[in-house]
Design a protein around this nucleic acid. Structure first.
Lengths: 196, 196
DNA sequence: GGTCACATGTAAATAGTTACATGATTTC
DNA sequence: GAAATCATGTAACTATTTACATGTGACC
């Protein structure tokens, strides 16, 4: 299970509350691992019981108090063990690909709107990533300290580059899908159409 | 839920037993939707109860008998309804990206072997896809019937092209990851290393 | 007789989603 | 006073994974 570890990584990057983690899972770390706040609260409670994280009550002015979580030594060790253990290349779940193959038994052209919507979502995400890349990695790290490499920064950047490459690939592929779907006129599918 | 629909699509492409479906989910449709045989048997039973699929006992010589499932009209309608309903762009789960960001708090260079292993898996999958593409789509469909487009074939092909594009993107990105990790010498991480 | 591929399942545990629930404070 | 954001949870359901279980027939 990687949600535990995704949370540990996020807390190592910056301690925070369950609410704040839920925010981060809508962007940043959420670009490659999704989770809802319900899941996050449950895992935080479990990790606290296991001694993987420490909690600290933080009174706040002008808003409700929060519980700030940070990674305990046992959590760091658990992360280390997970990093050292091999994992299987990810198992994919692409609803859209199922739909595209399924469209052969329905009206292929009727899927065009849906695919266009997905392409737009990927375009938006790409634009968002590129803004983030310029903002966070556009300039060299520290003008004075040109010495040791900042692992956290460099590795965040390479993961972001992966996200950018993924979105570009998807946009190109969805263009290909649209061109393919467009070759099937509405109503000419083999099951119900007059030209089948 | 798309496992139901992935099974329906697979059965429309070709009726078969739970065992055969489990085989297909190890290749073909399994490239974009994974499922184990336990899941498949459970879903088939449910879909049979709902009247989405029909079953037929097929006695076999030289091997155990099997139950052959095929899509019933109600299943076709359910698939049609699902195709018409918009779905959210997929939620991603990339363990490896979590590991890469997590490596900043451990020894980045120790992840190199794992990343190389993943790159090899993606290379293998790409090679496998390319063989399949040449085999199944290398020649034009039917030398005589140059008329109506074969939706099933064309849409299977565009999905396969997506798989190929994905694997190529991953291989390139993992090269980038390896180059990035290589810049961090073993033992120089900020937490335990002497150079931090 | 052992192993492999075919064939179908049950049980238990874990993970993930959806719906519901509460309450503070800020801004309009 | 209504809506939005911050903040934390419970309950119920659905999906997925892992482990266990059984039996056939082919091939060595």
């Amino acid at each position: 299970m990687a949600l535990d570890h995704a949370i540990l990584v996020s807390l190592l990057e910056k301690p925070g509350s369950g609410y704040e983690l839920a925010r981060r899972f809508e962007r940043s770390i959420g670009y490659f691992w999704t989770a809802t706040h319900q899941q996050i609260y449950r895992v935080l409670k479990r990790m606290e019981a296991e001694g993987w994280v420490d909690v600290r009550d933080v009174p706040q002015y002008g808003r409700p108090d929060k519980k700030e979580y940070s990674v305990a030594p046992a959590g760091r060790e658990a992360l280390s063990a997970w990093l050292a253990a091999p994992i299987e290349p990810e198992s994919v779940r692409h609803d859209l690909a199922v739909k595209i193959r399924g469209a052969a038994f329905d009206d292929p052209a009727s899927l065009i709107g849906e695919v266009e919507r997905h392409r737009q979502a990927h375009r938006d995400r790409l634009a968002h990533y590129l803004v983030g890349e310029t903002r966070d990695f556009g300039q060299p790290p520290e003008p004075e300290a040109a010495g040791p490499l900042d692992a956290e920064r460099e590795l965040q950047h390479v993961v972001l580059r992966g996200g950018i490459a993924y979105e570009r690939m998807m946009i190109d592929w969805l263009d290909d899908v649209l061109a393919t779907l467009a070759r099937f006129e509405p109503g000419t599918d083999p099951d119900t159409g007059p030209a089948g």
